[in-house]
Design a protein around this nucleic acid. Sequence first.
DNA 1: CTGTTAGCGCTTTCAA
DNA 2: TTGAAAGCGCTAACAG
Lengths: 339, 339
Amino acid sequence: MITIKDIARLSGYSIGTVSRVINHHHDVSTAAREKIEQVIAENNFQPNTNAKMLKQAVSSNISVLVKGTSNLFLETILEEIQHLLKESDHGIDVMFLDETANEVETAIQVCNTHKPLGIIFLGGNLNYFRESFGGIDIPCVLIADTASQLGYENLSSFATNDIDGSREAVRYLCQQGHTRIGIVGGSSDNERGYIGSRRIQGAVSVLKENNLVFDLEKQHEPSLFSVQDGYRAMTNLIRKSPEITGVFAISDMVAIGAIRAVHDLGLRVPEDISIIGYDGIEYTKYYVPRITTIEQNTMQLAQKSVDDLLLRINYPRTAVHEELPFSVIYGESVAEPRK
Amino acid sequence: MITIKDIARLSGYSIGTVSRVINHHHDVSTAAREKIEQVIAENNFQPNTNAKMLKQAVSSNISVLVKGTSNLFLETILEEIQHLLKESDHGIDVMFLDETANEVETAIQVCNTHKPLGIIFLGGNLNYFRESFGGIDIPCVLIADTASQLGYENLSSFATNDIDGSREAVRYLCQQGHTRIGIVGGSSDNERGYIGSRRIQGAVSVLKENNLVFDLEKQHEPSLFSVQDGYRAMTNLIRKSPEITGVFAISDMVAIGAIRAVHDLGLRVPEDISIIGYDGIEYTKYYVPRITTIEQNTMQLAQKSVDDLLLRINYPRTAVHEELPFSVIYGESVAEPRK
DNA sequence: CTGTTAGCGCTTTCAA
DNA sequence: TTGAAAGCGCTAACAG
């Protein structure tokens, strides 16, 4: 392994000067800079990040923790964030976590080792934040869930209002004339701070307002946020409530599984059953039928989060919590019910 | 930040002893171990990874470099690898790279900083390996492409034979009676070591053997490995060659975009145009129509790679290169052409 | 502008 | 079984 010491020896300068060149300090003579850069290139020298991080108080990086490895919705936002951060002079440091992992514990680790200037959480479980976010004291942003009730001074959040979004979804089904409406996805226990339960909550409230019968046990089937489980859940739902004509799927992934399930039961979407999804991932536009869905504004989510984080890194101020707009994307998976 | 020094002070032992406890050495008295573990727990102490890595010659981890952030095919293999490695006593260290990134340069970096025992490359560009893999001297495995011609002693590879796989795909279209066959995806320039060009090569060879006319310019449209670009490419292909009845899409993602494109042109799959994909990602089973595709055996790819890597870590021996079987998954996207 | 030097937190000899 | 102490590669403060 080639170290800064080797470069110093080979270039005839001291390690101090080499370090200055590496870190683009301006108090180095052109001669020294050129010579050292040449030696570095010749030897393909890479400074040891461990030593660097160990020594440095802070890096100039921003860490992004993504919850869930194959969550297309979050990945879309991530791409946008990477794009935006490339403009700034901050490095970026992405880390993918299992859906079940504790992102806040991981973040504390990351603070010790990577020493970022700020952290963006892409998705997360509010319970973990409640438990241990106190251990973090750099500016952070939570995307896709709201942290306003948590009251941390250094944690902003940007999200669409899940209750309103799902209300809109179900309202649209009602408008089309559906009266027997089912829900797939989310868990039925009203766990606090869980996105799925909020979406269910919104959906149910609209059904109640429209005086439609709704038996949670019969007209809802829980499901993970995956295609496979959406398929299973929808199959069950139709079996136990064959009279249903409209379905709100808690995420687009679930909607895709659900549509396939409908087909395999010999029914058609939207002729026999209408399905509306949630998130607005790119994929829904290429499905047959194109999926009607509630689109979250990934661009704005990314933009606002990055802006806020950079602002708070440079001018310490208190965190903000903002709700961003969503919109209904009219696809081909919802129609009026048969008479 | 709480350090090993604090734990030493708080427990009344020296930092040497604390370090031994942390690393589960057995030359520590039970009294010391218990006291120190208690203090560690009380203070929620996390050893600083940078300092640890800086000092240690090697970790006991295995690094996995995934090429492409939203490549469902590779992600499936990754999940399997994580599962398999959990059985072993090695830590695992995943890193996602951009599709355009240089994974070998990154790997060299990773060797310096994480000091893994071995590396698994999930996807990769053979050109980068040719250029700089010489800089790596720990056991490595490349998955999804073959490195046999490269001749590195410490680089095994496991992949399905892309030429045979795409031959099988096109052969199936021919069997069904298609004579005017198109290809979407891959790039037309025969870049060495590029998966797409090998799949095209296999496809074309079968067409030639069956004495079918094939004009690369007219019957092939290049595309990236994405749904969006598959859509665009298929639209172009049909415009320039409307007589085509069967299409080989170089990946399932491309196939999905292609099917949607067919629909939007007022045609149907498979009634008007048959489409066969490649990879066998989970998703194809939930599309409407279910996509006929060449399935790569992700389980075996993962299993063999992990086995080989662990073996070579423990008993140094030369690398191996193996081709793994594929199979045709008969979906609903291929039918006999209209007369 | 450049060199020297004191650590960053940890592991690992070497002595005791 | 334990403690003391020498660095791992690097940065930054200080002196020149």
